[in-house]
Computed example of a mutant assay.
Amino acid sequence: MVEPSEDTDLLFKALADPNRRKLLDLLHQHDGRTLGELCEHMDMTRQGVTQHLDVLEAANLVATVRRGREKLHFLNPVPLQEIYERWIAKFEKPRLKALTDMKRRLEKGNG
């Protein structure tokens, strides 16, 4: 089994590349695309797109399903949600509390 830190490393490595982020955006716009459909939107070889998809699959950001001879690619947003909860959400709470406190102070000053 892969350690959680290794999962996180794979995830951040996958997100670090703009081509992989573009592939994720494409799948977000229209899930279940074939390699050929994804290649139409990328300025690289089919082999290059395949290599980027392999990295995304290793990071669990893309899942695939075979449909006959085709391999469909689907966005898996769960790892992104986990990153949001671990690295972003906890930093939003103090900021939102500070804004609420400021609002209350300003309302008291005008009351």
Rank of each mutant, 00 (worst) to 15 (best):
M1P: 05
M1R: 00
V2L: 15
P4L: 15
S5G: 12
S5I: 09
E6K: 05
D7G: 08
D7M: 15
D9Y: 14
L11R: 01
F12K: 00
K13Q: 10
L15I: 04
L15H: 06
L15S: 03
L15T: 03
A16K: 01
D17A: 11
N19K: 06
R20S: 06
R20P: 04
R20Y: 08
R21F: 10
R21Q: 11
K22R: 04
D25Q: 10
L27M: 06
L27G: 00
L27P: 02
H30I: 01
H30P: 04
H30E: 15
R33Q: 09
T34A: 14
L35W: 01
G36M: 09
C39E: 01
E40I: 06
H41W: 08
M44P: 02
M44I: 06
M44N: 01
T45A: 12
R46I: 02
T50D: 14
T50L: 15
Q51K: 08
L53R: 01
D54F: 11
D54I: 06
A59I: 05
L61D: 08
V65L: 14
R69V: 02
R69P: 01
H73W: 03
H73Q: 07
L75N: 06
N76A: 14
L80T: 08
L80M: 05
I83V: 13
Y84S: 09
Y84W: 09
E85N: 09
R86C: 12
R86G: 12
W87N: 04
W87C: 15
A89R: 05
E92R: 05
E92A: 10
K93V: 06
K97T: 00
A98S: 09
A98K: 03
A98T: 05
L99D: 02
L99E: 05
T100C: 15
D101I: 03
D101W: 07
D101N: 08
K103W: 10
K103E: 14
R104D: 11
R105Q: 07
R105D: 10
L106N: 04
L106A: 08
E107V: 04
G109R: 10
G109E: 15
G111Y: 08
